[in-house]
Amino acid sequence: MSAKLKTLYAREILNSRAIPTIEAVAILEDGSTGVSSVPSGASVRHLGKGVLTAISHINTEIAQKLIGVDYGSLAEIDETLIKLDGTPNKSRLGANAVIAVSMSMAKAIAISTKMPLYRYVAAIAQNNQPLFIPAPLFNMINGGKHGAGNLDFQEFHVIPNMRHSYSAALETGATIYQTIKKILIRRGAIHSVGDEGGFAPNLFTNLDALEVLSEAIKEQNHQVGSDVELGLDVAANTIYKDGRYVIKDRSSPLETMEFIDYLKDLNTQYHLRILEDPLAEDDWKGWTTITSTLGATLTVVGDDLLVTNPERVKKGIAEKACNSILIKP
């Protein structure tokens, strides 16, 4: 594979939350074009969420470094970007600038090699396993920082079983979403939409939200835990206060083991498939305990725990703190 960049530029766009982000465009000499956008950084514009500094880095320093050079692989391009930045966390050029360029180059190269992006990524990762579309995960109810302050947990998920086609699973999720709205209206609950597209109802407890999901699944003639599974993003950092976990479902704060027992009871009742960030990011002993207890039956996802940080990932593996990681570029 050979990739020689002809044109590289970036501009500011707005994402679905009206927050500025970067869109980078990479055009190879053969005309293949990749376009990619990433989350924003910080500046004094747009209430501290502008990205013009990072855009300037792409349009000047990064473009001057990359244009006209014949690279043999995407890895060479990424290594060039990392060395050009020169910091451990890409803080000089901006991680958003570096990632936007890397992603747009990946898309352009995939087009140039006449491969779908997913096959190109699998090829450079030397993945020879059969490829398939993952099961869709629907973020149906929002709480925590993504909601209206009514629920403690950040996301309540619905995950259709992939025994049938992806399109069938997508339809199942869409009909359950509409059914949830009807149930909330029937209960006299608020059915406004939260920060990530799920409903942000004024329910009393986290258990109430799981009950609404279960009711919606059953109304569509599906079986909870079999046809359609449930998941939670607890985002436990937000409920960890002075070394204990504070949730509306309990009248007093819970010690780590008490909170783990609470989550075990939820899993027994609702047959969870995914449990993301069930404990605070530095509660390592608790993470090891909950994974050893529940990891055989569900996916314990480390997001805030690991933050795609190589050192934290190494520690997570060594301590068997979780059995899955959420990778963010």
Rank of each mutant, 00 (worst) to 15 (best):
V35F: 00
S37M: 14
V38N: 09
V38Y: 00
P39F: 13
S40Q: 12
S40V: 08
G41Q: 04
G41N: 03
V44C: 10
H46L: 08
K49P: 05
G50N: 02
V51Q: 06
T53V: 11
S56E: 15
I58M: 03
N59C: 07
T60F: 05
T60I: 04
T60C: 05
E61G: 00
E61M: 06
E61P: 00
A63F: 02
A63Q: 11
A63H: 08
Q64Y: 12
I67V: 15
V69P: 06
V69W: 11
V69G: 10
D70M: 01
D70A: 12
Y71I: 05
Y71M: 02
Y71G: 03
L74T: 12
I77L: 10
D78V: 07
D78K: 08
E79R: 14
T80K: 11
L81E: 13
I82Q: 13
P88N: 10
K90H: 13
S91R: 03
S91N: 05
R92Q: 01
G94R: 04
A95Y: 01
N96S: 14
N96C: 10
N96E: 14
N96D: 09
A97H: 04
V98H: 12
V98Q: 13
I99E: 15
V101N: 03
M103K: 12
M103I: 10
M105L: 15
A106L: 00
K107D: 07
